[in-house]
Structures are given as C-alpha cells and as structure tokens.
C-alpha cells in the first residue's frame, strides 16, 4: 500500500435490500390508486344508471361475466391461444431481428447490402401484409404468427442496430489496447454496450406483438381473446368485450413487467436518472 485512500463512497450492499423492496412495493401500490378510483366511480355511475348497461356494464358485471367464462374453462382456452400466438410470433420476430441486426450492425458490407431493403420494408404498414399472408398461408395460425412476427421485428431490429453502432469508440479502443480477442470484444464490450438499447427494442416489440395479435384475431379466428371480443360484439355482450380488454391490458402489462424485471437485473450497472429519483423518493 503506497497511498492510503481518503475517498469513500457508499457501496450498494450497504443499503438495506429489505428496505429497498418495501419502497418498490409501496411505489407499485401507488400505481393502483388511479385504476381503483376509476373503477369505483364507474361502478357507482353504472349502479345509478347514469350510463345504459347495454353500452357500459358495471365492473361487477364484467367480473361476473369473466368468472362465468372461467368456470366453463372456455376463458382459459382463449387466453392460452392468444398468449401462445404472441409468444411464437414474438420469438420468431425477435429471433429474426436479433440475427439480422447483429449481422448488419457488425459488418459494414452487410449493412450497406441489407439495411436499405429492411428500411424500405419498414415503410410498409404492417397490417398491409394481411391480404397477402391470407392468400399465401390461409387464415390459420401461420399467417397470424407471421403478422405478429413482422410487427415485433422492426423495433427490435432498429434498436439493436442503433445500439451496436452507438457503442462508445473509446471503450472499443480499450479493448484493443487490452488485446481482447474478437469473441471477448463481443462478449465483454459489444453485447453489454448494446443491451440497454436492445432491451428497449424487445419491450417495444412485445407491445406491438400484443397489438398485432388483436389484428390477427379480428381478421378471423375461432379462439383467442380477439375472437372473444368479436363474439361479444356479435352477441351484444359489452361485458365480454370489456372483460377481454382488461385481460389484454393485464397480459400486456404482465409480460412487459417480466421484461422490465429482466432489464433491471441486466442493467443494474447503469447510472441513470431514474435510479437517483428512486433513492431520493425513498
């Protein structure tokens, strides 16, 4: 030891993790206040017959309708089918976007060859593919999954390429000075540097996946939450439509929360504004 250090900073472990968990669950609870108040107002308005029930049934009625569907087992089947479609479409779209993004991000030649075409395809509104897909693959699963995959693809591809190209040149120089192999450069520098942008892309892609599954199910399906909505419309049951809406919201939020939790874990090294805000509020 040549010089005794006088600089001191708090290490993360020194802050109580239990306290932190309590803070985060408290802030989650705050997020529930507005929906609960809205539901209460809605329920009161419906009971007072301020809005006709054939347009907007009370929340209690929506819940009753949903639990009736759940008891018959029908609801779970619809949910499972929709979740499966999103999952497969997301996997296909994210897989293709990751592969192509990694290729065009890391090779100038491939970027110059492929990127203009991909950007041009992006300009086609995704729903415009529907007629072609139906013609090619029929109205069954393939065309639905493909439509979802297309919707998922672009945000992930764009964010990944932006992330790769935005990697700090100075850090890459450090890798050169340290004599990192190509593999270590990718593993220890490029992937972590790209991760924030890539995860943003995954979350945006997943949100679009949920959007496109509705489009896919509205265009013709015999199962799924989108079908349930059409069914509710045809049979004049607004409670079913609203119930499906709520289920979509819950499913979208839950899947996004999973990705968000993964992001937080993977990006705990970040020194962002959100984090300082969190600790100040605590």
């Amino acid at each position: 030891m040549l010089v005794e250090t006088v600089e001191r900073r708090a290490l993360p472990g020194w802050r109580g993790t239990a306290a932190k968990a309590a803070v985060s669950s408290a802030s989650h609870l705050k997020g529930l206040i507005v929906p609960l108040v809205l539901a209460a107002v809605w329920e009161i308005a419906a009971r007072a017959e301020a809005i006709p029930a054939y347009l907007l049934p009370a929340p209690s009625e929506v819940l009753a309708e949903l639990s009736a569907l759940a008891e018959g087992g029908e609801l779970w089947e619809h949910i499972a089918v929709t979740v499966w479609r999103v999952a497969v479409g997301f996997a296909v779209g994210a897989g293709a976007a990751t592969l192509l993004g990694a290729l065009t991000g890391s090779s100038r030649l491939l970027r110059e060859l492929l990127d203009p075409t991909i950007q041009a395809l992006k300009a086609v509104p995704s729903l415009a593919w529907v007629p072609l897909f139906i013609l090619w693959f029929g109205i069954f699963e393939t065309s639905k999954v493909l439509l979802i995959a297309i919707g998922v693809f672009f945000p992930i591809y764009l964010n990944l390429v932006t992330g790769i190209l935005g990697t700090d040149r100075k850090l890459v120089e450090v890798a050169r000075v340290c004599g990192l192999s190509r593999f270590d450069l990718v593993r220890r520098v490029l992937i972590p540097a790209t991760l924030p942008s890539y995860l943003t892309g995954l979350r945006a892609g997943l949100a679009l996946g949920w959007m496109f599954v509705i489009a896919a199910e509205l265009m013709g399906a015999s199962k799924g939450l989108g079908f349930l909505m059409i069914d509710g419309q045809m049979t004049g049951r607004p409670a079913v439509i609203i119930g499906a809406l709520i289920l979509f919201a819950l499913a979208g939020k839950a899947s996004d929360a999973l990705l968000e939790a993964a992001s937080k874990r993977l990006l705990s090294w970040q020194d962002g504004f959100g984090e300082t805000q969190e600790t100040r509020n605590a």
Binding site: K170, V174, G179, R188, V189, P192, Q270, D271
Partner: peptide, 23 residues
C-alpha cells in the same frame, strides 16, 4: 492510460482490470 478512465460501466473494478489479462 487515457484522459478519461474508460472503464466498462457494466464491469466491477476487478473485472475491468481483468480485461488486460484474458489470455
């Protein structure tokens, strides 16, 4: 040594130093 520390923000002090020794 550069003007800026140029540490990988996702690596601890230990892992940053390890970068020079990977072989």
């Amino acid at each position: 040594v550069f003007q800026e520390p140029r540490l990988m923000p996702w690596l601890t002090v230990r892992e940053n130093v390890r970068l020079a020794l990977l072989d």
